[in-house]
Amino acid sequence: MKLYYSPGACSLSPHIVARELGLDITLDKVDLKARRTQSGEDYLQINPKGYVPALELDNGQVLTEGTAIVQYLADRHTGAKLAPANGTIERARLQEMLGYISTELHKSYSPLFNPATPEPVREERKAYLRKRYALLEQTLTQQPHLLGDDFTVADAYLFTVTNWAGGVDLDLSEFPALQAFQQRVGQRPAVQAALAAEGLGGKQQAA
């Protein structure tokens, strides 16, 4: 399989999941402005949506959208227990959390990465994000991960998105449980390996 990614973008989430599962996966870096891959391909021919991630399967099919990719990978390797079984209320809770991160957090960061965004809009988005993080703080105060004791694909996604806060001057210091979560997840060997493979230090970019 080949994962098309941009360093520190939301593609970091499936990258982490793949490493958690010990998968033999090829990485191909995408220049999102030029829409070209490091291997020289026209990325729009691979993923007409133009953004990352995209996962090329061994049979040639291409799967897009990070929340779909992480669930696909987890379901192919159920022994790692990165996602509850399909058809269970626990799986619905996972999908509920992935949807929340995607719509309430991920997309709310987007205007903050645009230098043309007016300051009043930036401040409004930051306030909105803090309000949404407050709900997750309540959860993480009671348990180490979003769904309980075990690390899941939702935790990989939250870690990825929350790592963008420093790059947009979003102060999350009022959320100690969230901060502890970021540190805890960031110390996982798979996360460290993914960050190193993408050439990341502390800063990341959104996509």
Rank of each mutant, 00 (worst) to 15 (best):
A18K: 02
D171F: 08
K81P: 00
G40T: 11
F159V: 01
T160H: 04
Q182F: 05
D149W: 02
I16F: 00
A83N: 02
K131T: 15
G50D: 06
F151K: 00
P48H: 08
L172I: 15
Y133I: 14
K203L: 14
F151C: 02
L32C: 11
T64S: 13
Y157C: 09
V30P: 00
Q204E: 07
E90A: 15
Y51P: 01
N59Y: 06
G50A: 10
A80T: 05
P189S: 11
Q45S: 15
A116P: 00
V191A: 10
A92S: 13
G40C: 07
Y51R: 12
Y4E: 06
L94H: 00
M97K: 04
G202T: 15
I101P: 00
A92D: 11
Y133C: 12
R35S: 08
E41T: 04
P48W: 10
V70H: 07
Y133M: 14
R122D: 05
L94I: 03
L200V: 12
L94C: 03
Y109M: 09
A116E: 13
R91D: 02
Q38Y: 01
T88W: 01
A193N: 04
A177W: 01
E198G: 03
L170G: 12
L136W: 01
D150Y: 03
T162E: 11
L12A: 08
G8A: 07
T37F: 09
E119M: 12
R93N: 07
G148R: 05
F181Q: 04
A80G: 04
Q179R: 14
V185N: 02
R184L: 08
P120M: 06
Q192P: 02
Q182S: 09
A54R: 02
S110W: 06
A34V: 04
Q143H: 08
V121E: 14
N47G: 07
V121G: 03
K29A: 13
L57Y: 02
L178E: 11
R122N: 05
D150A: 15
E56V: 11
V168N: 08
Q61V: 07
R35N: 10
V185T: 10
G79M: 09
L200W: 05
L12Y: 02
A83Y: 00
I16V: 07
L129W: 01
F151W: 11
E174W: 04
L147T: 00
A92M: 13
E123A: 14
H106S: 12
R132E: 15
